[in-house]
Design a protein around this nucleic acid. Structure first.
Lengths: 106, 106
DNA sequence: TCAAAGTATCATGATAATATAATATGTCAA
DNA sequence: TTGACATATTATATTATCATGATACTTTGA
């Protein structure tokens, strides 16, 4: 075990930091933030439903989902013709919540 | 008042979402993440100290700080020749902490 | 006023991200 | 097997971001 530090134990090593930054880069897009929010509150959903709920174009939405899937932020489940997506990495919704807080909140 | 919802009350409006995304985009860079981490743990510091601690080039560091300042993530305080920077928006460190968590952490 | 330390800004070429439209793939039912 | 629905992939033009080096600004003490 690693001495269980309180928060961030120093900072992650460069390689890990780069991965964190990459994940944040994925979250740093309005459409993708909305996808995370929708999946969190509405639960898993097939692409066409996300398309309807979020008003995003099929191709673009599919790409966003694909990127997020590669990064492990969401996961995909085929059910017949549909592919249902859901949040796979809670950090995504945590970050979203953090960002929704008032700036001054500790 | 807006009924004080528990977490994210629906999602922020498009304009607000775009701002959130912009802030996240700023955090989504290894060097800037390290700046936030350094400022959090070490407190305020003048640029040349950050330069030494983080091993970042002067011009680049200055630009990072400037971008973060514009977004309100950090604040600058001139003290003589030096300019001391500190965290101005707790969301920056909160996001950093979120990201440092294990993926499975609720 | 000068010099030098400390920061900030600018210019630019390289790389990455984005939007969009078109096309391809997979699945099921008839 | 065909058609149609659901999703994925590709191509590409555009824009944004990054790293780097050069230059400008600001402050202080001599």
């Amino acid at each position: 075990m690693k001495t269980k530090p309180s928060k961030c134990p120093g900072l992650p090593a460069p390689a890990a930091l780069a991965r964190l930054a990459a994940v944040l880069r994925l979250l740093a897009h309005p459409d993708r933030l909305r996808i995370v929010g929708r999946l969190e509150r509405g639960g898993a959903a097939p692409v066409h439903e996300l398309m309807a709920d979020l008003g995003q174009a099929q191709g673009a939405l599919s790409q966003h989902l694909n990127h997020m899937k590669r990064a492990g932020l969401v996961q995909a489940d085929r059910r017949g013709k549909e592919v249902w997506y859901s949040v796979a990495d809670r950090r995504a919704v945590k970050v979203l919540h953090c960002m929704c807080c008032k700036k001054e909140t500790k």
